[in-house]
Design a protein around this nucleic acid. Structure first.
Lengths: 197, 197
DNA sequence: ACCTGAACACCGTTCAAGT
DNA sequence: ACCTGAACACCGTTCAAGT
């Protein structure tokens, strides 16, 4: 976890390190003293770069938002048709939950969901969620749903994603594994993507 | 929040107070010193009744589990048929999310989901979730689904509930309100309860 | 048996002093 | 400009001493 002895630390160094511990230990783990120790510096050094712990949290959240946006954009294959794009988007989200049970991108998101009580965290989550739901709405609308129904369906799909994320971390023993897991994901995707009326 | 001046505090008094703050401020808010202050006692008094903060948390979790089990049993009308029971179970769960945005039963559950990293919290959640999924599985099985499909469908429904709970607290602005909310809940319930093949 | 009060460790924050 | 080191507040934990 130690990043080696640097003569001087930058704001980026601290923020990067904070994002690391955020993924592992959640928001409470973004603590100044332990962070300083792992970087081989003192708390005083930290307070040169940041006003307080909240400023570090803010910078960390912004870093996460930037990377998350990039990742989602990179995950969509623009050459595919809308239906395929939608299906693979939902599928990728659900499968990504499985991958990084402890270290993946999903674990940062879960850590943030854990700390919604913190206003800054709530704001960051609100922005990212809003962006994702809007993107899915567009896809549903492109498939022929009315604006209202498209948004509603996007919300439902996102709700399923959030719940799946939660279960994968809180009670993974209850989720099917291996082949059964694929079947389960396939069923969710079907429910979320196929519709009528 | 102060429970008045009592001469002597019991384990129940501390546990009850802990459950209160758990609902409002989450697991981190279950702190010995503030709790002692609100009860008009000293930290030393606390440590007569409990080995440490973890022992208090454990007692609080057990209290929640007992009450949760009672509530769920009370919520099911045994005189109804299986389909109606299932539908009202899902519906009640989703609507309860709306009720107590800050104080309701759902807020304790959300607070616990927030702290899955804590092994004791994870264990408690695992027990409750397992119990609920099993109960729903039975209902699905009673409606004619195979054991495997019944369990899978119960998982899917529970996943939707968890995600809904999450959104209602983290990003409530994104969920529809009023009449549109009822429509949204109705749609989720339909997806979760109606099935074929 | 139950509680107080003082003590210590840990982390957030401040700031004077160093390079 | 960037960092150290010491100080203080807050909460978890211990424990000798009180009733």
């Amino acid at each position: 976890m130690t990043l080696g002895k640097r003569e001087r630390l930058s704001v980026q160094d601290w923020t990067e390190a904070a994002l690391q511990v955020l993924a592992h230990g959640g928001v409470p783990a973004v603590a100044v003293e332990p962070l300083a120790k792992s970087l081989g510096a003192t708390k005083g050094s930290f307070y040169w770069h940041f006003a307080d712990r909240n400023a570090l949290l803010q910078a960390t959240l912004e870093l996460w938002e930037r990377r998350d946006t990039d990742q989602v954009l990179a995950g969509i294959d623009e050459t595919q048709d809308h239906a395929t794009r939608l299906r693979s988007l939902v599928e990728l989200a659900l499968l990504s939950v499985q991958r990084g049970a402890d270290a993946g991108a999903g674990s940062i998101e879960l850590a943030l969901q854990s700390s919604v009580s913190h206003p800054m965290v709530a704001a960051a989550l609100q922005r990212v969620t809003s962006r994702r739901v809007a993107a899915m709405s567009e896809l549903y609308a492109a498939l022929g749903l009315s604006k209202a129904r498209a948004r509603d369906h996007a919300l439902l799909a996102y709700t399923a994603y959030l719940g799946h994320l939660q279960m994968a971390h809180a009670t993974p023993e209850l989720l099917p594994r291996g082949r059964a897991f694929r079947t389960h994901v396939d069923r969710i995707v079907s429910v979320m993507v196929e519709f009528d009326s």
